[in-house]
């Protein structure tokens, strides 16, 4: 697993693969205040980012990888639902 779940916190580590997305979506739905820590993430398959975009959990830390951080921030800044 490249996503570590501890209580209401999901910790993305290194490369988060496409397979992780389904579990992530399921996990987020079970938590009232899910928090996502992306600090140690170097790449996340966009399926996972889609989950974040659709569910809007709190991002407690952005990736230290600046390039990835920019991409994810741009994704979470757009909001077609509003």
């Amino acid at each position: 697993m490249t996503i570590e779940y501890v209580k209401n916190r999901a910790h993305f580590r290194d490369v988060v693969s496409v397979e992780d997305a389904e579990a992530l979506l399921a996990w987020i739905q079970t938590k009232s205040k899910p928090r996502i820590d992306l600090a140690d993430c170097t790449h996340a398959h966009p399926a996972n980012i889609q989950v974040l975009m659709a569910t809007r959990p709190t991002i407690s830390a952005w990736p230290r990888d600046e390039d990835l951080a920019r991409w994810i921030q741009s994704a979470l800044a757009s909001n077609p639902n509003s």
Binding site: L25, I49, A54, I72, S74, A75, S78, N79, P80
Partner: peptide, 12 residues
């Protein structure tokens, strides 16, 4: 660069 949603997200 940026990444945007194409269509509104479906209900969870």
């Amino acid at each position: 660069s940026r990444m945007v949603a194409r269509e509104a997200w479906a209900p969870l």
